[in-house]
Design a protein around this nucleic acid. Structure first.
Lengths: 210, 210
DNA sequence: GAACAAATCACATAATCATGTTAGATACAT
DNA sequence: ATGTATCTAACATGATTATGTGATTTGTTC
């Protein structure tokens, strides 16, 4: 019987996964918390789980910090990240912190179950897209073209400016165009990405969704 | 229709895989050679495959050498290693040479088929044991840089709101506090992180620097 | 119980952003 | 040559953000 723990702040997702896993013959899932802090408290008083599913974006401590702390105190616990983020920073930071697997949130319940079993038998579960990012890290940074960004080269420039935290004025300076042109590009970017704030563009970009 | 090629010197295995794959609706497997040299000759005269299954131990040139040569000449060909070797050197050398996947030879025919499809849709097929080795390669690295931002739990909540693309007003609603309180927290966050815009906070957060 | 961090709220103002409308110059494809 | 896409630019206005200066409450720590 494999003991599974969950750290996930979305109650609906957490409950769904917990119920599904606990229903399985070979799994038991009693510990489902919404923060690393709560999980640490739980593990003080109870048997630590064998495998832990962990979100990244959490109230309080982030899931990545959580990995380090949990692995330091309970090195035998295997941690699978279960998150929407597929940007390289988060992936590599997670793996370097000691995660043993990395799944995207669209992973189905049966696949999550399989992943836990894979982990228990010495493998490392990873969503194919994640594996791809990891592998790309090895291949001589041969920049493979990103999948269809829809954005024109100039629009991509503007996005890069936003990601660097620049104001419209500074972006205009960087590319030597007028601030109104920057506005115009940003309008078009918003339309293409279906967003309406700098914040969302930056988030999408850093999550690898552009 | 995905065109698949095979380089494998064991005739029985090669024929088995070829027949199985060629039988599939969405795959065609015409090129099955027993050496990289033969495959290169084939590709001179015919359309190169989209995906290639490659053994390592081969007569003549090794599969790993083969990757480099094939990728240089036909960079769009995706190569999956299919081999009995699971030692780190062979794995990493293959990936560094440009392989997009790595399967062990006990992989079943349906799994091989799935792997080809995974690859075609932008993922990277890897046997779980291989994934494990690859991941271990990361955790052996240095520790994750400690984000010493030292945000309070509430401040982290606010950051999460920003990352989700919310306005001050919506963050205030989410946590049931006044918009001026949100402002106050954000002021403090900016001071701690040495930034002065939402954009920078979001970028830092998504880059794992918080 | 003084000192301090954390969380809460208010008022004010300047800067920046989001969005609507309009339009000229290239370039490329049908 | 006509349409479509891209890059450029201006003007305008309401919304949102950034920043300054305060203040109260609730815990914790020394």
């Amino acid at each position: 019987m494999i003991k599974v723990g969950i750290v996930e702040d979305n109650v609906k997702i957490r409950d769904l996964i917990q119920k599904y896993l606990d229903m399985q013959d070979n799994l038991s899932c009693k510990a489902a918390m919404d923060s690393v802090e709560d999980m640490l408290e739980y593990m003080e008083k109870n048997d630590p789980p064998d495998v832990m599913l962990m979100d990244i974006q959490l109230p309080g401590m982030s899931g990545i910090e959580g990995i380090s702390i949990i692995k330091e105190k309970y090195p035998e616990v295997e941690i699978i990240m279960l998150t929407v983020y597929h940007d390289s920073h988060k992936i590599f930071n997670s793996l370097m912190a000691g995660a043993s697997g990395y799944l995207l949130k669209h992973t189905s319940l049966p696949e999550i179950k399989e992943s836990i079993e894979t982990l228990a038998s010495g493998g490392a579960p990873m969503s194919p897209q994640i594996a791809r990012k990891v592998i790309q890290h090895f291949s001589d940074k041969q920049q493979v073209k990103k999948p269809e960004s829809n954005l024109t080269p100039r629009e991509q420039d503007i996005v890069n400016g936003l990601v660097d935290g620049l104001s419209y004025k500074l972006i205009a300076d960087r590319y030597d165009i007028s601030i109104d042109t920057v506005r115009a590009h940003i309008r078009n970017i918003y339309k293409k990405l279906h967003v309406n704030s700098k914040a969302e563009v930056i988030a999408k970009s850093l999550k690898g969704e552009i």
